[in-house]
Amino acid sequence: TTFVALYDYESRTETDLSFKKGERLQIVNNTEGDWWLAHSLSTGQTGYIPSNYVAPS
C-alpha cells in the first residue's frame, strides 16, 4: 500500500525513517500499532514512521 506524507518528520532514533511532506512511502508492515515500517520511494531507505503523519495516496 502506498501512502503520502502529510508533514515533515525527522527521525528520533536510528530505526525511524525521516521524510518530507509529499513524499511517497510504501508500507511494509502496519501491524505495530501507531508506528509502521515503511520504505521511502524517494530515498530507498526503510524505517519506522508515525502512522498519523501519512495518508493513503
Rank of each mutant, 00 (worst) to 15 (best):
S51T: 09
G33D: 11
V4M: 12
E32G: 12
S42Y: 05
A55S: 15
P50S: 04
D16P: 02
H39T: 08
T46R: 14
I49M: 03
V28I: 13
P50E: 01
K20H: 07
T2G: 07
E23M: 05
Y53Q: 04
V28M: 09
N29L: 09
Q45H: 07
E32A: 10
F3M: 14
Y48K: 08
T1P: 01
N29F: 05
S18R: 08
S18Y: 08
P56G: 10
E10C: 11
K21R: 12
G33S: 08
T31E: 11
D8R: 02
V4K: 03
D8K: 07
S40Q: 15
T15R: 09
L37F: 14
D34V: 12
Y48L: 13
D16H: 10
W36L: 09
P56K: 05
N30A: 07
D8T: 05
T46G: 05
N52D: 05
Y48S: 03
T46N: 15
D16T: 14
V4L: 05
W36Y: 10
T1F: 15
T2L: 06
S11H: 14
P50W: 06
T43E: 04
T2W: 08
L6M: 12
Q26D: 13
W36K: 11
T31A: 13
H39M: 14
G44Q: 15
G22W: 03
D16L: 04
T13S: 09
K20S: 10
T46A: 11
S40T: 02
A5N: 01
Y48G: 06
G33T: 09
W35A: 07
V54M: 05
G44C: 04
L41I: 06
I49F: 02
G33A: 08
D16S: 13
D34R: 11
G47R: 01
V54W: 01
N30K: 07
S42V: 11
H39D: 06
E32R: 14
L17T: 04
E23C: 04
D8I: 00
P56A: 08
S18I: 01
G33C: 12
K21L: 04
P56R: 07
D8E: 05
G33N: 14
S42T: 05
L25A: 00
S40M: 03
W36S: 04
I49D: 00
V54R: 01
E14Y: 15
E10S: 12
L25S: 01
K20C: 08
V54S: 02
Y53S: 13
Y7Q: 15
E23S: 03
P50C: 06
V28E: 14
F3D: 06
L6V: 09
T13D: 06
S42D: 08
R24C: 09
G33R: 12
R24Y: 13
P50I: 03
D8V: 00
F3S: 03
D34T: 03
L37W: 14
L41F: 05
P50D: 04
D16C: 12
G47E: 01
A5M: 07
L25I: 09
P56C: 09
G22A: 02
E14I: 10
K21Q: 12
S51V: 14
T15A: 08
L6P: 04
V28R: 12
S51Q: 08
I49C: 14
Y7N: 13
V54E: 00
E10Q: 13
F3I: 01
A5T: 10
W35M: 07
D34L: 09
Y48I: 09
G47K: 00
L17M: 03
G22K: 01
T46M: 11
R24A: 13
N52K: 14
Q26E: 09
T13Y: 11
N52G: 12
F3P: 01
Q26Y: 10
L37T: 05
V28Y: 09
L37K: 13
Y7C: 09
S18L: 00
F19M: 06
E32D: 09
I27A: 10
Q26F: 03
T46H: 04
T15C: 06
V54T: 04
Q45E: 15
L25R: 00
Y48R: 14
D8F: 01
N52V: 13
F3T: 02
T2V: 07
T46K: 13
S11P: 10
T2I: 15
T46E: 12
I49A: 01
F3W: 08
F19E: 03
R12V: 12
E10W: 06
K20V: 09
L25F: 13
R12G: 10
P50N: 03
I27E: 01
N29Q: 14
T15V: 08
F3V: 09
T13E: 15
T43A: 04
L37M: 11
T2C: 06
E14G: 08
G33F: 06
N30C: 15
P56H: 14
T31Q: 13
V28F: 08
R24T: 13
S18N: 07
S11Q: 10
L37P: 02
W35E: 06
L41D: 06
D8G: 06
Y48C: 04
T13W: 11
G47M: 00
K21D: 03
S42N: 14
E14C: 12
K20G: 03
I49P: 01
T46V: 10
N29R: 13
E23L: 00
T31K: 05
Y7A: 13
G33I: 04
K21E: 09
Y9V: 03
T1S: 13
A38G: 06
Q45D: 07
G44S: 06
S51L: 03
D8L: 00
Y53L: 13
N52W: 09
S51D: 01
A38V: 12
A38M: 04
T15G: 13
I49L: 10
Q45T: 04
A5Q: 00
Y7M: 12
Q45I: 08
V28W: 03
D34G: 06
Y9L: 02
T13R: 14
T43N: 12
Q26V: 07
T2M: 14
A5W: 00
W35G: 05
V4Q: 07
L37I: 15
Q45Y: 06
S51E: 15
N52L: 11
G22S: 05
L17P: 06
S57L: 08
W35C: 12
L41G: 04
E23T: 04
L17Y: 04
T46I: 08
Y7H: 06
E14S: 13
T31M: 08
T43V: 00
K20R: 11
T15D: 08
W35T: 08
G44L: 10
W35H: 15
S42L: 12
E32M: 15
A5R: 00
S40I: 03
I27Q: 06
E23V: 00
Y53H: 13
Q26C: 13
V28K: 15
L41N: 13
R24S: 14
L17F: 15
L25C: 03
E10N: 12
A5V: 08
T15Y: 04
T43R: 11
V28C: 02
I27S: 08
Y53A: 09
T1I: 15
A38Q: 04
Y7D: 10
H39F: 08
D34K: 06
S40E: 01
P50A: 04
L37S: 04
R12M: 11
N30D: 02
T13C: 09
S18M: 01
S42E: 11
A38S: 03
N52F: 14
S18K: 08
D8P: 02
F3K: 05
D34N: 09
W36E: 01
S40L: 12
P50V: 01
T31C: 06
T43Q: 07
